[in-house]
Design a protein around this nucleic acid. Structure first.
Lengths: 230, 230
DNA sequence: CTTCGACGATCAGGATTTTCATATTCAGGA
DNA sequence: TCCTGAATATGAAAATCCTGATCGTCGAAG
């Protein structure tokens, strides 16, 4: 699995290269946009990681050049914080996923693996839905029945987990390991509290509840009334 | 590399087994103390991960039995939160490292790798020192000139990093990746603020400063007055 | 039908961490 | 020497998250 990294900042570049190499990928690193474009057209990579801010030719231009050259490979791009427009622009130009700096390496690795495995992610897949609830992974924004809902990082992660497994009963241990990267510890009720906070935001004041408790098992996200396995 | 896991709680056990297998280790899982003891004496493992709370025969007893049988292998044990006495007891009985539940899997993996690589960790290595500052990794406690210092999780991690690289100038990007598991983002000053908080606790009111700023480079922990590379 | 116990919900308080705005320091050039 | 911009320090507010206590509810046993 070959990955092309296009990143000018030496620290970030080395960090990515080293981390991905340790994770078993073969990587090439381009220090500016032109080199990146060259390499992308020449070698065939399974993924390109592209920083937006580059000297000379920027990330969008590289992406456009690559696509024009008919090179078809998944692209993960890196944007600065809160540059939502940038992310949207990237998506429209045919990028497949994005990551906001600063990011945890584990996060990057997860996305890289996902992209390498399933190839391009369709644009649609960046919006998760259930009934009238939508979660836009790209814009990091949630809406229910059209109303915008502000979420914190933990709330977002939790809701994303629910939406990725609609109708499934998620035991606390699973939630703990996914959202907290923690082994389960029965002495804490962080999860209950977090679920409550999320409920207040996405269920309170709406027509019907989406998050249901399954006694002794965990929680489910479901549009229907009740009952999973009778 | 073979690892023996002794853990009764099914969820935790499976979680460990799966994660370690994915990381490339061969694992056996014992569901109670007696089985664990049996296996530990029979097969030769490179590491044992031992939960303290087990039905019937507890973790200490397993450890003692193993040591009495003359089996020499590193042992990493898992304790409940805030059971400091337990940890100390474990160390005295010949365990090599510990982890408090709940823990992040990345944390466990780091320790497992370390133990498998270097075999037993001497007890001494769990206390890091620099001048009159001591950091007891086991008890999660810091003292300077005999005075106890309370540290939060982030402060602890930061100080540990400094103490593991005394005299070295640590660039912010390194600190960010180690303590925050984050890629560097120049738009934030979390690191500066964290260093300041740490300074207040370990330098303020003491004879001399330990943490020094190296302009344009980062921070150093040093007993001496100033100057690293002239 | 009532009672009991386990499980979950809820709330307030607090601790920690991050962000933000503002000072201070430092190095190098005028 | 003095000025100036960049880097760092500082203080305080704001956001987020966790802890612990208490209350409510459900289900099974009597």
């Amino acid at each position: 699995m070959k990955i092309l990294i296009v990143e000018d900042e030496p620290k970030t570049g080395d960090y990515l290269k080293q981390g991905l190499t340790e994770a078993g990928f073969v990587t090439d690193l381009a220090r500016d946009g032109w080199d990146g474009l060259e390499l992308a057209k020449a070698g065939h990579y399974d993924l390109m990681i592209l920083d937006v801010m580059l000297p000379g030719i920027n990330g969008w231009q590289v992406l456009e050049g690559v696509r024009r050259a008919g090179v078809d490979m998944p692209v993960l791009f890196l944007t600065a914080r809160d540059q939502v427009e940038d992310r949207v622009k990237g998506l429209e130009l045919g990028a497949d996923d994005y990551l906001v700096k600063p990011f945890a390496f584990a996060e990057l690795l997860a996305r890289v693996r996902s992209l390498v495995r399933r190839g391009h992610s369709s644009l649609e897949s960046t919006v998760l839905k259930a009934a009238d609830l939508e979660l836009d992974l790209l814009r990091r924004r949630a809406t229910r029945a059209g109303r915008k809902i502000e979420l914190t990082a933990k709330e977002f992660a939790l809701l994303e987990l629910f939406l990725r497994r609609p109708g499934e009963v998620l035991p606390r241990s699973l939630i703990a390991s996914q959202v907290w990267d923690m082994n389960f510890d029965s002495d804490t009720n962080v999860i209950d509290v977090a679920v409550r906070r999320l409920r207040v935001k996405i269920d309170d004041g709406f027509e019907f509840k989406l998050i249901h408790t399954v006694r002794g098992m965990g929680y489910v996200l479901e549009a229907g009334p009740e009952g999973t396995i009778p």
